[in-house]
Simulated scan of single mutants.
Amino acid sequence: MDLTIQEMLQMADIMQKQTTKAMKIESSLIKKIETLSDQELKGFQVKEEYENMWNKAD
């Protein structure tokens, strides 16, 4: 399969946006985790929190 330069640029743009979005979410999660007590950490569902933040972003 051959890609045009335009298609490669579009793909690069999508990857950059997704990477930036993921980094912002991960930074927010780190800040949130740092403020939680030990008890809160035990019940913290990081995967679900990440997915919720991902779906709400943009």
Score class of each variant (00 low, 15 high):
1 M>T: 09
1 M>P: 06
2 D>R: 13
2 D>T: 10
2 D>I: 12
3 L>G: 02
3 L>A: 05
3 L>V: 06
4 T>S: 14
4 T>D: 02
4 T>L: 09
5 I>T: 11
6 Q>W: 09
6 Q>V: 15
6 Q>P: 04
6 Q>C: 06
6 Q>M: 10
7 E>K: 13
7 E>I: 07
9 L>R: 14
9 L>K: 15
9 L>C: 03
9 L>N: 07
10 Q>N: 15
10 Q>Y: 14
10 Q>C: 10
10 Q>K: 15
10 Q>A: 14
11 M>V: 00
11 M>L: 05
11 M>R: 13
12 A>W: 02
12 A>S: 02
12 A>C: 00
13 D>F: 01
13 D>G: 00
13 D>N: 05
14 I>L: 07
15 M>D: 08
15 M>V: 10
15 M>C: 07
15 M>S: 07
15 M>T: 06
15 M>P: 01
16 Q>R: 13
17 K>E: 08
18 Q>I: 02
19 T>C: 10
19 T>W: 09
20 T>S: 08
20 T>D: 11
20 T>Q: 12
20 T>L: 11
20 T>P: 00
21 K>G: 00
21 K>E: 04
22 A>C: 00
22 A>T: 01
24 K>P: 00
24 K>D: 04
24 K>G: 03
25 I>Y: 12
25 I>N: 11
25 I>V: 11
26 E>G: 03
26 E>C: 06
27 S>G: 13
27 S>F: 12
28 S>H: 12
28 S>M: 15
28 S>K: 14
28 S>P: 03
30 I>P: 05
30 I>T: 14
31 K>D: 11
31 K>R: 14
31 K>V: 08
32 K>P: 06
32 K>A: 13
32 K>R: 15
35 T>Q: 15
36 L>K: 15
37 S>Y: 02
38 D>F: 02
39 Q>Y: 12
39 Q>E: 15
39 Q>L: 13
41 L>I: 04
41 L>Q: 04
42 K>H: 05
43 G>P: 03
43 G>W: 05
43 G>Y: 09
44 F>N: 02
44 F>S: 01
45 Q>H: 08
45 Q>D: 04
46 V>C: 03
47 K>L: 10
48 E>V: 02
48 E>G: 01
49 E>R: 13
49 E>D: 05
51 E>Y: 06
51 E>S: 05
51 E>N: 10
51 E>F: 05
51 E>I: 08
51 E>Q: 13
52 N>W: 01
52 N>F: 02
53 M>N: 01
54 W>M: 05
54 W>I: 03
55 N>D: 12
57 A>G: 02
57 A>K: 11
57 A>V: 05
58 D>G: 15
